[in-house]
């Protein structure tokens, strides 16, 4: 690297190192704090939880950063544009038509498969319909995503009104992400899916830096803007579908950690923002769960708290954008 102030993101590197250390501490605490009973059993149980949270934290963070770059917009996330509400709609419809008991009796792997496929199909439809026709306007995509999301929510509400109250309370339980009941098979499948997508998409991070400059700059510099945007959105769809089907929606988590990552690293370079956001996502879930469970001994779900904090942060971002 050149001495003349050539782009040497020392701050970004430091941030990543610090975050990695914090994550290490969080994992160690989570795994070892107040171990009781059978050591093997407890460690395995906690290990599974940690793995689930790590997968989801990373997938949500990575997909949010990609989504921000693809849409040139930093205040939306895929979960805010239809994915979460589609998941909720699927759950509600299943509860209505099958009853939660029947639904829960279906093999989890099958259920997981159905959910992932439904969400991927939704994404494919959305993208194909909007990006396929030479209409390269990502803003339309976002707009339609939001409208679809609203439509799914309204449908959900309609179905919920017709649902048996007992079913309803059991359903409510499934509508916020839960890390305590992750199936081991699903964990492995999700880990493989997320790892594979990440490895395949990693080489495009440098080109995404150019995409972030804007479409015309990207074209001038020989980067196929549209193809990269489509690819990013595909990666986003896989990551979001898998993580949502695995644990449920964690609205606002992606928004929160991605924007924090931009601020902490002080750059938009994906080689730095993606690892930082990923680490933050894992810290938020693992550290948050630990603090919540062991220190505060809250019974509230972590994902509810994250949604709350993330929602406030979202309003703050909107406010800041509006003031610009």
């Amino acid at each position: 690297m050149s001495p003349k102030g050539h782009f040497a993101p020392r701050r970004a590197c430091t941030t990543i190192a610090v975050l990695a250390a914090i994550l290490g501490i969080c994992v160690a605490l989570f795994m070892t704090y107040d171990l009781k009973g059978s050591l093997d059993y407890a460690l395995e149980l906690r290990g599974r939880k940690v793995a689930g949270m790590a997968i989801v934290g990373f997938a949500v963070a990575y997909s949010s950063v990609l989504f921000h770059t693809a849409t040139h917009n930093r205040i939306l996330t895929p979960s805010l544009m239809g994915f979460d509400s589609l998941y909720i709609l699927i759950q509600t419809l299943a509860a209505y038509f099958l009853g939660t008991t029947t639904f829960l009796l279906i093999d989890v792997r099958l259920r997981f498969g159905i959910e992932v496929v439904a969400m991927l199909a939704f994404a494919a439809l959305l993208y194909r319909w909007l990006l396929g026709r030479g209409g390269r306007d990502v803003y339309v995509l976002v707009l339609v995503g939001i409208i679809m999301g609203t439509m799914f929510s309204s449908l959900t509400e309609l179905v919920m009104r017709m649902i048996d109250p007992n079913e309803f309370s059991r359903l409510q339980d499934r509508l916020f992400a839960s890390f305590s009941t992750i199936n081991q098979d699903l964990l492995a499948v999700s880990a493989i899916a997320v790892a594979a997508t990440t490895i395949i998409s990693w080489p495009m991070l440098n080109r995404l830096d150019v995409v972030a400059l804007g479409e015309e700059h990207a074209t001038n510099l020989g980067v196929d803007h549209q193809r990269l945007v489509s690819r990013s959105l595909f990666v986003v769809a896989v990551l979001v579908s898998v993580s949502t089907a695995l644990v449920g929606p964690v609205a606002f988590l992606g928004l929160l950690v991605a924007n924090l990552a931009y601020q902490l690293t002080g750059t938009f370079r994906h080689r730095y923002t993606v690892p930082a956001a990923g680490l933050l996502g894992m810290i938020a879930l693992i550290g948050g769960q630990f603090v919540l469970q062991e220190i505060l001994e809250f019974k509230t779900r972590l994902s509810i708290i994250i949604s709350f904090i993330g929602g406030i942060y979202f309003i703050f971002l909107l406010y800041r954008e509006a003031r610009k």
Partner: peptide
């Protein structure tokens, strides 16, 4: 315009992207 916050030097370095790929 560029959509992101970037220094002058970083911007000019992007001019080398066709050769360096970053």
């Amino acid at each position: 315009q560029v959509a992101v916050r970037i220094t002058v030097r970083e911007l000019i370095e992007f001019g080398r992207f066709p050769y360096s790929s970053g």
